[in-house]
Design a protein around this nucleic acid. Structure first.
Ligand SMILES: [Zn+2]
Ligand SMILES: [Zn+2]
Length: 785
DNA sequence: GCCAACGTTGGC
DNA sequence: GCCAACGTTGGC
């Protein structure tokens, strides 16, 4: 095994990343970018990024998301538009040296001399050293092209995309492309530094707007190879007929050792923009440790070749799919593949038992990871498995440092702690750091610390900048330079009724979008609430100027002052759409800095509730509850530890987890074997209503910790035990038709107990039909009555 | 130390 | 070929 200096590897990695940089791609319009990705295995991928930051990794996706644009002639790999008739003309070109624009008559692809070549008329499709003089005359007004940079093929230099020359622009301005629109005139780089190192000099490819494409880019090369034209040019054939190159490098003619016929056309030195196939590959297997050899390359067979083989087999045997077994699925397995299979299975099974309910279920479509998925309108940045699909058995296995030991039980994975079981979050790799001794502050909830939702393309990683902490009602727009990204601060006058509770003044601040459409889309809220404390859990929040929105709890974090912040996301019932009609990505996140202070982007609407200084016992409570959500546990195995009715209750809990409950109803974290469902929306008529199911499925409904009288109509005709999901859901639905009794104004309001103190009649029914404000008993107690 | 971003790999 | 998502790390 080789050990390798990790800094050296980092350096090479850096270089590799630069090579895969996004390049402006005005062919698709202003703001579009293109990237070529060469895998270590040699597989070549092309990605495009829209001006809004959406990344497309296939033509299918690109076409789907741009239905208004005719992309039928768009050649995905090359990034150019194809014009078939023109291409045909090109092939018929009598001259041997031509490289012709395959995309558009009005667009130039490299002429062979330094003659002006951009902006010539349709029909000037065959430019050669001999024919190029035609080109400028057609338009007449075209200025001479700036001098070109050529490379001496005898002294090839590694070129870097970073060495971009200043942009050129046609004096005639951009030409209309096939889409019928005028490409932007924004300057584009010319990439002279990554030109092909051709014996026959070729300038850059000129784009529709007069800018240039890298002549030696893989895109162009692919296209030309595809059309059989590189050979035409480089082998200087006299008949100009497309043909496959036979023998050495198509460009320099040198022998290419180990090349297979039809597989390679250019030698590595003629492919300056393509990462040469890595003959020696170091894989990182630990901190600063490297081993030689690829995972996927066994016995010299690259992944690409294996894939090719696989697909060949698939086509030959279409019925194979049915008999496909995940463990023996390789149709071309031979003895040499066994090791590879072992590794594959390892990776495959590491995080999925493939048997548990989570492994078998479908994407929830709601969690942040689902929202990130392109199929749900996300931008594919997180690329993680649905939260709900994290394996119940193996989401947490494998930890080289052994820190996945449960800090309470010392067991490796199991925790039969009821509270832990309820807090279903599995730790993902990025959560590992928080396992070792649970944090006293910081985010505790599913996944990473909360990040800004992506209502707009997020800042590229390289340009990310740290937001300054936002804490006390401080939502000044930090990135005011970004158009369309501005928000204005607006305090909402949110009053709170403390009728049944401690009276503290709370300050709310709500950020709005510039158009005032703050609630049109999704937004996020950080509610400071003593989430863990049942005694404090019955605060009543009254939001003014706020429409009811669906709320889902994302998790909570502990502020340095001991407050537990519950982070929830609200979503409009309206179908949120941005200006382009694309659904807005909602991932309900807010970012926390390392000190646990939330960081939220400008497009996030935040409700900030300040509860003031916490009492001492509040802090204690916080410490108790914080670790719960980050617990590592195996639900499946944990179940075995729980006997009798507790196991039954657990099973109900598990079923409920997989069920879509009526909106706003969420499970509550409770310290003993008991199931609590809480109406968590403070704007619901059922706010602070709790359904509690205890051992034996006995249940009780409470409003602000006051149990409903057993004579309440809600209990009528209902089973005495709630043992099934349907029974629970039926009850919740019935509850939704009710409202919490408003009580009646008691004593006169006091300045320190703003705004109103309400009291209830002794025999208050607590829950009344939604059309009523208060129950009969409380109505009787109204001052006027 | 942490995690958002993304390179890479496996499945189909 | 596309899609899903695992595993790593640059930038903070
Ligand atoms: Zn999900
Ligand atoms: Zn599983």
């Amino acid at each position: 095994m080789y050990c390798f200096n990790s800094e050296e590897m980092d350096m090479s990695r850096n270089i590799s990343r630069r090579r895969h940089a996004w390049l402006d791609w005005p062919v698709l319009g202003a703001g579009w970018k293109r990237k070529e990705v060469i895998r270590w295995s040699g597989v070549h991928d092309v990605h495009y990024m829209s001006p809004r930051g959406h990344v497309f990794r296939s033509k299918l996706k690109l076409v789907k998301s741009n239905k208004h644009t005719d992309l039928r002639k768009f050649h995905y790999a090359s990034g150019l538009f194809l014009d078939e008739s023109d291409a045909m003309k090109d092939i018929e070109c009598p001259d041997g040296g031509a490289l012709v624009d395959p995309s558009d008559p009005s667009e130039r692809i490299g002429s062979v001399t330094s003659m002006p070549s951009w902006n010539s008329a349709p029909g000037d499709f065959c430019e050669t050293p001999h024919s190029s003089t035609q080109t400028p005359q057609r338009r007449g007004s075209s200025p001479p092209r700036p001098s070109q940079t050529f490379r001496n093929p005898l002294h090839p230099t590694k070129a870097s995309p970073l060495g971009l020359s200043p942009a050129r622009q046609s004096a005639d301005g951009p030409l209309p492309n096939l889409l019928g629109r005028v490409p932007p005139q924004t300057p584009s780089p010319t990439f002279t530094s990554i030109q092909l190192l051709a014996p026959t000099r070729r300038p850059d490819i000129t784009m529709r707007n007069g800018s240039s494409l890298p002549n030696g880019s893989v895109a162009v090369k692919n296209l030309l190879l595809h059309q059989g034209r590189i050979e035409c040019s480089m082998a200087r054939s006299t008949d100009c007929q497309p043909r496959r190159h036979v023998g050495g490098c198509a460009k320099c003619g040198s022998d290419i050792p180990g090349i297979e016929a039809g597989e390679e056309t250019l030698c590595p030195s003629c492919r300056p923009d393509k990462k040469p196939k890595q003959r020696i590959v170091f894989r990182k297997v630990g901190q600063g440790r490297w081993v030689l050899g690829r995972t996927s390359e066994v016995d010299g067979m690259t992944q690409q070749r294996r894939k090719r083989k696989y697909w060949t087999m698939q086509k030959k045997r279409p019925s194979l799919q049915d008999a496909h077994d995940s463990d023996t699925g390789d149709c071309f397995k031979d003895e040499d593949d066994i090791d590879d299979d072992e590794q594959s299975r390892n990776r495959r099974h590491r995080r999925a038992c493939l048997r548990c309910a989570a492994c078998l279920r479908k994407d929830c479509g709601k969690c942040d990871f689902c929202m990130d998925k392109p199929k749900f309108g996300g931008s594919n940045k997180k690329r993680q498995k649905c939260r709900m699909r994290q394996c119940q058995n193996q989401a947490m296995v494998r930890e080289s440092t052994g820190t996945n030991l449960n800090h309470l039980t010392g067991k490796h994975t199991l925790v039969s702690d009821w509270r832990a079981l309820f807090s279903q979050w599995h730790l993902l790799p990025h959560q590992k750091g928080r396992r070792k001794g649970m944090p006293s502050t910081g985010w505790v909830g599913p996944g990473r610390r909360r990040k800004a939702s992506r209502l707009k393309p997020s800042r590229p990683r390289s340009k990310r900048k740290r937001r300054r902490p936002i804490w006390e009602g401080d939502f000044t727009d930090e990135e005011g330079g970004d158009d369309g990204d501005k928000v204005k601060e607006e305090d909402l006058n949110v009053k709170k009724s403390y009728g049944y509770n401690h009276g503290k003044t709370r300050n709310y601040s709500l950020k709005k979008d510039e158009d005032g459409d703050d609630l049109e889309g999704a937004f996020e809220a950080a509610l400071t609430s003593d989430f863990s404390d049942q005694d404090n859990g019955d605060d009543t929040f009254v939001f003014e100027n706020v429409e009811p929105y669906e709320l889902s709890i994302q998790g909570c974090f502990t502020a340095p002052n001991g407050d537990v912040e519950m982070v929830a996301s609200f979503q409009s019932s309206l179908n949120s759409r941005d200006q382009t009609g694309e659904p807005l990505a909602v991932d309900g996140t807010g970012e926390l800095s390392s000190n646990g202070i939330p960081q939220l982007s400008d497009d996030v609407v935040v409700v900030r509730v300040d509860v003031g200084a916490p009492a001492e016992d509040d802090v204690t409570e916080v410490d108790e509850v914080t670790p719960v959500i980050t617990q590592i546990f195996s639900l499946a195995e944990g179940t075995q530890d729980i006997q009798g009715s507790e196991a039954d209750l657990l099973q109900l809990l598990e079923s409920l987890r997989r069920t879509v409950l009526p909106v706003h109803w969420v499970g509550r974290d409770v310290p003993r074997p008991m199931l609590q469902l809480l109406q968590c929306s403070k704007r619901s008529t059922m706010a602070d209503t709790t359904l509690q199911i205890e051992l034996g499925f006995l249940y009780q409904i409470s409003v602000q910790n006051q149990p409903l009288l057993l004579t309440h109509p809600l209990y009528e005709g209902r089973p005495s035990r709630l043992s099934s999901v349907s029974q629970v859901v039926a009850l919740l639905l019935d509850l939704e038709r009710l409202a919490v009794c408003q009580g009646h104004p008691g004593l006169a309001p006091r300045p320190d107990r703003e705004p109103v103190l309400c009291v209830r009649a002794a025999a208050c029914q607590l829950l009344v039909p939604a059309s009523q404000e208060r129950c009969d008993k409380c109505r009787d107690s109204l001052p006027d009555a």
